[in-house]
Amino acid sequence: MDKTRVLIIEDESITALEIQKKLETWGYHVVGVAGSGEDAIEIARENKLDLILADIILKGDMDGVEAIEHIYEITDAPVIYLTAHADEKTFERAKETKPAGYVIKPYDEKELAFNMEIALYNRKVKSRVEESEERLKGLNQFMLISSKAMTSSMRIEDTAGFLKEFARFFQSNVHPRFRKELLAENSMRSDEELLEDYLKWLHQFFKNLGYKVDTKDDSLLVNRCFWGTHKGDNKTFCLMCKAITELSFKWTGLPGRVRHDSGVGLNSPTCVFTFGDEEE
C-alpha cells in the first residue's frame, strides 16, 4: 500500500527534522522539507502530495501563507498550519486559504496526529463525492445529449441499439457507486430492509438528476419528469428511466420485478415504478 506523501515547510532545521522523524515513525512518506516558500513550491511541482504541513512565519520574502497560495495552483492537497505566533493580518490571510487544520507550536503529538488523520479523511470523502458527482454529471449529459437525437419516428432497431448503449453506460458509471453506497455495508439486512434502503437510494438518485420524486410503500412516484412535457413525443425518454430502475433493482438481488405505470389516473404522478412484484 502506498504511503501518504507529506511536504513539510519549516525554516527551523531542528524542528523540521523532529517533525520528519515523527511522521516517518507514524508511517508517512516525507517527500521533502522546505526551508523557504520558494523551495516548497519547487518540491510541490516535482512531487505528488497528499498533505502539507506549513509554518506560517518563514525567513525570506515569502511566508507560509503566500507559499500555500502558489502551491494551491499546483495541487489540491490540504494544508495544516504549524506556527508559534502570527499577527492578526497574517492569520486572516491564512484563513482565506481554507486550511484543514491549525496546530500551535510547540505542538502536541496527539493533536498533530489527529489533525492529519482528519484532513486526510476529509480529502478522501471529498474525492469520493466529486467522483460520484462526476459520474452523475456524465449520466445526466449522456441523457440530455442523446435525447436530442431521439425522435418518435426512430426505427425500432435503432431505439433498441441506443437503449443497449445506455444500459452499458449506466452499468459502468453507476454500478460501482451503487455497490459502495448500498451493498457494501449491512449485508445481513432482510429483503424488506434492503428494499427500503434501495428506494431511498433511488429517490436520491433521481432527485440529483433533477426529477421531482416521492416514495410510497414499495413504489417510486415520479411527479416531474426529467424532460418535462416532451415525454409524450418520445417514448425513448421513458424507456431510459425504465432501464435505470430495472437495472438498479436487479443489482440488489431482491426477488420479483419492476412494474411501470405511466400517467395513471387524474392528476396522477407522471410515472409509478413498483418494486418486488412477482413475475406473472
Rank of each mutant, 00 (worst) to 15 (best):
V6E: 06
V6P: 08
E10P: 00
D11L: 07
S13I: 14
E18G: 11
I19V: 10
K22N: 06
E24M: 05
T25E: 03
G27S: 11
G27P: 08
V30H: 04
G32E: 03
V33E: 03
G35H: 08
S36W: 09
E38M: 08
I41L: 13
I43L: 12
E46D: 05
K48M: 07
D50L: 09
I52G: 00
A54H: 12
A54Y: 12
G60P: 06
D63E: 07
D63M: 10
D63W: 12
D63L: 02
G64T: 03
V65W: 04
E73D: 03
I74R: 09
T75Y: 02
E92L: 09
A94G: 07
K95W: 13
K95Q: 06
T97A: 00
K98I: 15
K98F: 15
A100V: 12
V103Q: 11
V103R: 08
K105L: 04
P106C: 00
Y107H: 08
D108Q: 04
E111I: 03
F114T: 01
N115M: 09
M116A: 02
E117W: 14
I118L: 06
I118H: 01
L120M: 14
R123K: 15
R123M: 01
V125D: 00
V129G: 04
R135D: 10
S146G: 10
K148D: 05
A149E: 13
T151K: 05
R155K: 13
E165M: 11
R177E: 02
E181H: 11
E181F: 04
N186R: 12
N186C: 03
S187K: 05
S187C: 10
D191I: 05
D191Y: 05
E196M: 12
K200N: 04
L202G: 01
L202Q: 07
Q204C: 01
F205S: 00
F206I: 07
V213M: 05
D214C: 00
S219Y: 15
V222A: 03
N223C: 15
N223V: 11
N223M: 13
R224A: 15
C225D: 14
F226N: 00
W227F: 07
G232R: 14
N234K: 07
C238E: 14
L239A: 13
C241V: 12
A243P: 09
T245S: 04
T245E: 13
T245N: 08
S248N: 05
K250I: 08
W251L: 01
G253L: 01
V258D: 10
V258P: 08
V258G: 02
D261F: 15
G263N: 15
N267Q: 13
C271M: 08
E279Y: 03
